[in-house]
Lab assay of single mutants.
Amino acid sequence: MQIFVKTLTGKTITLEVEPSDTIENVKAKIQDKEGIPPDQQRSIFAGKQLEDGRTLSDYNIQKESTLHLVLR
Rank of each mutant, 00 (worst) to 15 (best):
S57V: 07
P37N: 09
K48A: 09
M1T: 03
D21V: 02
D39S: 13
Y59G: 01
D32H: 11
E64C: 10
G53K: 12
K29H: 05
S43E: 10
Q41G: 05
F4C: 04
I30V: 08
S20P: 04
I3Q: 00
S65K: 02
K29F: 05
D52K: 01
L71D: 07
N60K: 09
R42Y: 15
F4Y: 14
L15I: 11
G47V: 03
E64G: 15
F45Y: 13
N60E: 07
P38Q: 12
V70N: 04
N25V: 14
F45N: 04
I44E: 09
M1S: 03
R72W: 13
T14F: 06
L71R: 08
S65V: 02
Q2L: 14
D21M: 10
P37F: 10
A46H: 13
D39I: 09
R72Q: 12
L56C: 02
K27I: 13
T14P: 06
D58S: 14
R72C: 10
T66E: 07
F4M: 04
D58G: 02
T22Y: 05
L15P: 00
E34S: 13
Y59E: 02
T7R: 05
T12H: 05
P37V: 08
I13A: 02
K27E: 02
I13C: 03
V26Q: 00
T7W: 11
P38I: 15
T12N: 03
I61P: 00
Y59I: 02
T9D: 14
D39L: 08
K63E: 12
L50Y: 02
R42E: 14
I13Q: 01
V5M: 03
I61Q: 00
E16P: 03
G10H: 03
Q2V: 15
F4V: 04
G10S: 02
G10M: 03
S65H: 06
I23H: 01
R72K: 13
I44V: 11
Q40A: 10
L8H: 14
S57Y: 08
H68P: 00
A28Y: 12
R42K: 13
Q31C: 10
Q2E: 08
S43T: 15
V70A: 08
A46Y: 15
T55V: 05
V26S: 00
Q31T: 09
S65D: 14
G53F: 11
P38T: 15
L56G: 01
Y59A: 02
T55D: 01
P19R: 05
R54D: 04
I23K: 01
L50K: 00
Q40W: 11
K27T: 06
T66F: 07
I30K: 13
Y59R: 02
G35S: 05
R72D: 11
L8Y: 13
G35C: 06
Q31Y: 15
V5Q: 00
H68I: 15
T12V: 14
D32T: 09
V70K: 07
S43H: 15
I61N: 03
S65P: 01
F45H: 07
D52F: 02
G53W: 14
T55M: 10
I30L: 08
V17S: 02
Q2C: 11
A28S: 11
